[in-house]
Amino acid sequence: MTRVHDLGHARAGDKGNISNISVTAYDAAAWDRLRRDLTAERVAAIFAAIGAGPVTRYELPRLHALNFVIQNALGGGVSRSLSIDPHGKSLSTLMLTIELPEETP
């Protein structure tokens, strides 16, 4: 099983009710894999568990990084949220738990 955690690192930021989470690959091979398999759809499927979405993905090939902008991820925004983590700081680690499909030889 390969998880995003094996391939790269992540950071979450908050603006209003939107969380953005970057994923940066550790190396070129990891970048190819993340770019191919860590799709907006795959991320949206996981973040649906906290009621979040839709998800937009931006690519930064020079930095081997992806940036996911996830709507409705912060329980109505930092000030109104009932969440124990209103800024969604911990959502970067939810991104890292995502499992990717195994590569076919």
């Binding site: 603006k15 953005n20 970057s22 931006y58 930064l60 940036n67 902008v69």
Partner: peptide, 16 residues
């Protein structure tokens, strides 16, 4: 490079 890249994309939406 790693710490700088994480912070570059912090609280950023469209990087362009």
């Amino acid at each position: 490079r790693m710490t700088a890249t994480e912070q570059l994309l912090y609280e950023m939406h469209d990087p362009a």
